[in-house]
Design a protein around this nucleic acid. Structure first.
Lengths: 161, 161
DNA sequence: TCCATTTATATTACATGTTATATAATTGTG
DNA sequence: CACAATTATATAACATGTAATATAAATGGA
């Protein structure tokens, strides 16, 4: 077993390390969702959740709300329209804008996710991180070790009961 | 200005959020390196640093040390060989293994980076995160706000004097 | 010793992020 | 009120991660 240099380098490689931990969390989250039958990718839910919370939004507003660039938002919206989860209409007063809203199916999916899926994910992540405190690098190490010891989907199953 | 839903959702969207913060840190780090004339991408340095620290490694060991998958390591190694920073040789006792080492130029780059670049990056990130404490979500918020207020390259310039 | 299994690396296909730029609609100003 | 500048979205080109699979070498047991 070789030393994990990204972990060893401390603040110097913090960006790489946080990105890596984030990707691992997302991958584990995806597994929970797969097990529960949720039909989308983890990274797509923020788009649905943003509209659910804020009402119909333009592409640019969705980019802001989800923290991706505008081209990223354009692409994900196109995909979710393709999948039947979102509808778009041209804005009446500004023909450049596209107003994105939840389709009937999108609304159903959000309702189900809010009830059955998101609470489990939240509980699993809380199980992993909720009690953490102290310096950032120590918390990151605890998260990495915690994920290695028991991935989120195992924690979700545990918490569920 | 639209609400940042990934931030609002707390633990539920922690993976997306950490990935995003990590990407932002990396992008800022890249800008420091660009300003200092470092010729590689931020994400490529862990490969050089791993070999500098641990000596020549196989592709698989590099994957472990840098925390990427083996195909990712294969590709990055190929790129860095192309750029003249790494050399590879077939292992004598196991023809499947490729031993990856720093080229003369790679060694020179690591020496320069260790002296001139990495300390600045470390100092800038420490300026941003070094004093943080408390619950994870609060620290993440502080990092996001801190980066928005003064990106890492500004902090590097400040610390440098 | 032969051959099935395992292991190390490479390849393929894809997901999802970015930046730079194109296009079309709107706005503001001389 | 025409036209330059701005704004919203789309597209293109690329970077970098993954999983699944192919290929070639090493290993181990009948």
């Amino acid at each position: 077993m070789v030393e994990d240099v990204v972990r060893s380098f401390g603040f110097l490689t913090l960006g790489t390390r946080m990105k890596r931990v984030g990707e691992k969390l997302q991958a584990d989250t995806q597994r929970i969702m797969d097990e529960l039958g949720a039909p989308l990718q983890a990274g797509q839910y923020p788009f649905l959740a943003a509209i659910d919370r804020l009402g119909p939004l333009t592409v640019g507003e969705l980019a802001e709300a989800t923290g991706v660039t505008q081209p990223g938002a354009t692409r994900t919206v196109a995909l979710l329209v393709e999948l039947g989860m979102l509808d778009t209409e041209q804005s009446a007063d500004d023909q450049r804008r596209r107003i994105v809203s939840l389709s009937r199916e999108g609304k159903r999916l959000v309702a189900t996710a809010k009830r059955d899926v998101w609470p489990r994910i939240d509980a699993a992540v809380t199980d992993l991180c909720g009690d953490l405190d102290g310096p950032l690098l120590e918390q990151l190490a605890a998260i990495e070790d915690g994920l290695a010891a028991a991935p989120l989907n195992r924690r979700a199953a545990k918490v569920k009961s």
